[in-house]
Amino acid sequence: MISLDVALGERAYPIHVGPGLLADTARWREAIRGRHVLVVSNETVAPLYLARVEAGLRGHVHASLVLPDGEAHKTLATCARVFDALAALGANRDATILALGGGVIGDLAGFAAACWMRGIDFVQMPTTLLAMVDSSVGGKTGVNLPAGKNLVGAFHQPRAVIADTSTLATLPEREYRAGLAEVVKYGAIGDAAFFAWLERHADALNARDDAVLAEAIAASCRHKAGVVARDEHEQGERALLNFGHTFGHALETATGYGNLLHGEAVAIGMVLAARLSAERGHASHDDARRLARLLAAFGLPTAAPAADPERLLALMQLDKKNLGGRLRLILWHGIGAAAIVPDVDAAAIRGVLAAA
């Protein structure tokens, strides 16, 4: 097992990465401070792992809520079901939610925890690679609206992150590869050596080699934990973690939630951001092609699906990073160096979208 901390003063919390952690009840029970516990999971994950978690809750007043699977269900209506379950449990301010699932469950359950009685504890138990290296760390929670992704949310840090890598054995191939997009992102925006390491170990990662995978997950979590500790509420550096996401979120919304997995949309978005950076003279076209080659080596899409460029641009203009109605994107200066670029010309974005 590999353990590290997100250093937020009195609100610091551990990230544990390793096999068999869901069964290691002593490891995660220490994060539960009150009597009431609600486990929130989905129809895919619950049959595999819910009983294992419930067995560790003896002595607690607990209940479980199993939700439909998929991004299309990350809504306010689904969140209301979590509130109803908390009310039925009699959950007070010392209650804890355990988020057992991928990024959708983590975002949704975390948002419900942020809202219930103005904030209760929750523990992230990610079961997808994407959630382990990205959404479970950092306290971003939220739900989608028809107008856009994650437009309603809150910063609410978990009490702990329990990443049981054994759960990745049951992860479908497409979802596993989607998680690798976020791993690539960390190298692309801030660690050229890690990016090169990923190029050398692409075959081992595709084969889900245990040792190589654990190293990739730990490196990704260390990078994100460091950024979150320095900029919890995304006032500066943390925005760099959204490289590719403004394009990606627009693609997810325009194509209908669930048709593109989040990691797939981010992969395409990173390629588009790299191309736009090259078109603006910030980076080389060679680096953009190198990024596309690595993503393709992981079986990820690098070309955008058919979508109206004007519709995509309108969705991008709703992005939370924009200020004063002006487009603000995360672009880069080549592999390992990203930057926040304010007031990006809409015509240049439109050109890249049309070419894609």
Rank of each mutant, 00 (worst) to 15 (best):
Met1Lys: 11
Leu4Ile: 09
Asp5Ser: 15
Val6Arg: 01
Val6Glu: 08
Ala7Leu: 15
Gly9Arg: 06
Gly9Leu: 13
Glu10Pro: 11
Gly18Ser: 08
Asp24Val: 09
Ala31Pro: 06
Arg35Thr: 12
Leu38Gln: 08
Ser41Ala: 10
Ser64Ile: 04
Ala72Asp: 13
Thr75Leu: 07
Ala80Trp: 05
Val82His: 10
Val82Ser: 06
Ala85Lys: 10
Leu89His: 09
Ala91Asn: 01
Ile97Gln: 01
Leu98Ala: 09
Ile105Gly: 12
Asp107Trp: 03
Ala113Asn: 02
Gly119Ile: 06
Gly119Gln: 08
Val123Leu: 07
Gln124Trp: 00
Pro126His: 06
Leu130Ser: 04
Leu130Ala: 00
Met132Ser: 06
Thr141His: 00
Gly142Pro: 04
Val143Gly: 11
Asn144Arg: 10
Asn150Met: 05
Gly153Thr: 07
Ala154Trp: 01
Phe155Ala: 15
Ile162Asn: 02
Asp164Glu: 09
Pro172Phe: 11
Pro172Leu: 00
Arg174Pro: 00
Arg174Ile: 07
Glu182Arg: 03
Ala188Val: 14
Asp191Thr: 09
Phe195Ser: 07
Trp197Phe: 05
Trp197Tyr: 06
Leu198Gly: 00
Glu199Gly: 07
Arg200Phe: 14
His201Ser: 03
Ala219Cys: 07
His233Cys: 14
His233Arg: 15
His233Tyr: 14
His249Glu: 09
Ala250Glu: 00
Glu252Trp: 08
Tyr257Leu: 15
Leu260Tyr: 01
Leu261Asp: 00
His262Leu: 10
His262Asp: 10
Ile268Glu: 00
Glu279Arg: 14
Glu279Leu: 12
Gly281Pro: 03
Gly281Ala: 01
Ser284Lys: 07
Ser284Ile: 02
Thr302Pro: 05
Glu310Thr: 14
Glu310His: 15
Ala314Glu: 11
Asp319Arg: 07
Lys320Glu: 05
Lys321Asp: 06
Asn322Pro: 06
Leu329Phe: 14
Ile330Leu: 02
Trp332Lys: 02
Gly336Val: 08
Ala337Met: 12
Ala338Pro: 01
Ala338His: 07
Ala355Pro: 01
Ala356Asn: 10
